[in-house]
Amino acid sequence: MKTMLGATTALVVGTLTAQAGGIDRSGQGLGALFEKGRYVELSFGAVKPEVSGNDVALFGGGATGDVASDYTQLAFSYKYDINDQLSFALNLDQPFGADVLYSATSAALGGTNAEATSTQLTGILRYKFNDRVSVHAGLRATKSDGFIRLQGAAYAGLSTYNVTLGSDVAPGYLVGVAYEIPDIALRVALTYNSEVKHDFLTTERLGAAQIAPQSVTNVTLPQSVNLDFQSGIAEDTLLFGQIRWVDWSAFRVDPTAFVGLAGGGLIDLEDSVTYSLGIGRRFNETWAGSVSVSYEGKGTDNLVSPLAPTDGRIGLTVGGIYSHENMKVSFGVNYTKLGDAQPETGTPDVARASMTGNSALGVGVKVGWSF
């Protein structure tokens, strides 16, 4: 029971999570680290967001189109026990990403585009002092790149500005502690993920014309804290959840020429706290299921970056687990209502469009083998 239901926690906060505050995609979970024995896990998720709205009346009220593109998530984990107290896990995932494009029907922002990808490899050691208390720590390497284009009347003379951030690999780390009571499937794990500081080789253009020599832009992928918990609350029934804080206010993209022209940077985000809570239930020796809700509050005002055009979210995930011998298959569906927001530009910030009625649908599957 503890093995089957324990897998539901990763399903909720992993590949089924719709894009949250900033460009968060994976949640940086460590579920495989706490599996028994040697363990291999593969997961796949697909998310279909729908984020659209209209320009404000000043720009004619044209439609923005569906600005958020569909995306997929892949992840791999491998864990083994070195001895009775020390274990090792290797995780490969895609923690951050963005793919935003405004339609030409928007006079204010049409053509504005943001693309970002990241791939992260993390090695983690866990040391168990006893059956209840353990610590874990690890090192990671993150490869990222990006492209941003500003276009439309809302950007005035900066319309058609674009910047390419070349691929860069940078290090980071994590540290954490866990407390468990195995008899009741209780586990509370606290993990700190460090920031990752990239130095991107940067090319800035206005249209096709390069407007400055190549430079280096320092971008900090934010630090975060995950508090994961689970506990048996009745026979064959598990309560589980997570609280995740991300320091998005430290995530800045400030290319040299753009700051000189505009007096500020390209991105301005607020910190986010995301909560999830769910219940898992074992039906028999083969099948278990779960249902959970997730919530992220809105920012201090309704104005947001056009490159991250939603504010807050609430979602529902329904999942199942099939177990057979040394294999278990987790699968689920998530529906998330994304909060309304107003993309802004200018100094001071001025609303240029209104995004309402937004949502995301996610599906995911994860296959794990113990041996």
Score class of each variant (00 low, 15 high):
residue 82 I to G: 04
residue 82 I to K: 11
residue 83 N to T: 09
residue 83 N to Y: 12
residue 83 N to K: 15
residue 83 N to A: 10
residue 83 N to E: 06
residue 83 N to F: 10
residue 83 N to V: 08
residue 84 D to F: 12
residue 84 D to P: 08
residue 85 Q to S: 15
residue 85 Q to A: 15
residue 85 Q to C: 11
residue 86 L to P: 01
residue 86 L to V: 12
residue 86 L to I: 11
residue 86 L to A: 09
residue 86 L to D: 04
residue 87 S to F: 05
residue 87 S to I: 02
residue 88 F to Q: 09
residue 88 F to Y: 15
residue 88 F to D: 00
residue 89 A to P: 04
residue 89 A to K: 06
residue 89 A to I: 05
residue 90 L to C: 09
residue 91 N to M: 14
residue 91 N to L: 15
residue 91 N to D: 14
residue 92 L to T: 09
residue 92 L to Q: 08
residue 93 D to E: 10
residue 94 Q to H: 11
residue 94 Q to D: 05
residue 95 P to W: 00
residue 95 P to C: 06
residue 95 P to S: 05
residue 96 F to Y: 13
residue 97 G to R: 02
residue 97 G to A: 08
residue 97 G to C: 07
residue 98 A to R: 09
residue 98 A to C: 13
residue 98 A to Q: 12
residue 98 A to D: 03
residue 99 D to W: 07
residue 99 D to M: 13
residue 99 D to Y: 10
residue 100 V to K: 00
residue 100 V to L: 10
residue 100 V to S: 00
residue 101 L to F: 11
residue 101 L to R: 15
residue 101 L to I: 15
residue 101 L to D: 13
residue 102 Y to E: 02
residue 102 Y to T: 00
residue 102 Y to R: 01
residue 103 S to F: 07
residue 103 S to E: 05
residue 103 S to P: 06
residue 104 A to W: 07
residue 105 T to M: 08
residue 106 S to M: 03
residue 106 S to N: 03
residue 107 A to E: 00
residue 107 A to Y: 03
residue 108 A to N: 04
residue 108 A to T: 00
residue 108 A to L: 01
residue 109 L to E: 07
residue 109 L to N: 00
residue 109 L to T: 00
residue 110 G to K: 01
residue 110 G to I: 03
residue 111 G to K: 03
residue 111 G to I: 01
residue 112 T to H: 12
residue 112 T to A: 06
residue 112 T to Y: 00
residue 112 T to R: 03
residue 112 T to D: 06
residue 113 N to I: 12
residue 113 N to Q: 15
residue 114 A to F: 10
residue 115 E to A: 14
residue 115 E to H: 14
residue 116 A to G: 12
residue 116 A to S: 13
residue 116 A to K: 03
residue 117 T to S: 14
residue 118 S to K: 02
residue 118 S to P: 05
residue 118 S to M: 03
residue 118 S to H: 04
residue 118 S to Y: 08
residue 118 S to G: 04
residue 119 T to R: 08
residue 119 T to F: 06
residue 120 Q to K: 13
residue 120 Q to R: 11
residue 120 Q to F: 01
residue 120 Q to T: 12
residue 121 L to T: 11
residue 121 L to R: 01
residue 122 T to P: 00
residue 122 T to L: 13
residue 123 G to Y: 04
residue 123 G to Q: 09
residue 123 G to F: 08
residue 124 I to T: 13
residue 124 I to N: 00
residue 126 R to W: 06
residue 126 R to S: 07
residue 126 R to T: 11
residue 127 Y to H: 09
residue 127 Y to Q: 10
residue 127 Y to F: 14
residue 127 Y to R: 11
residue 128 K to F: 08
residue 128 K to D: 14
residue 128 K to A: 12
residue 128 K to C: 11
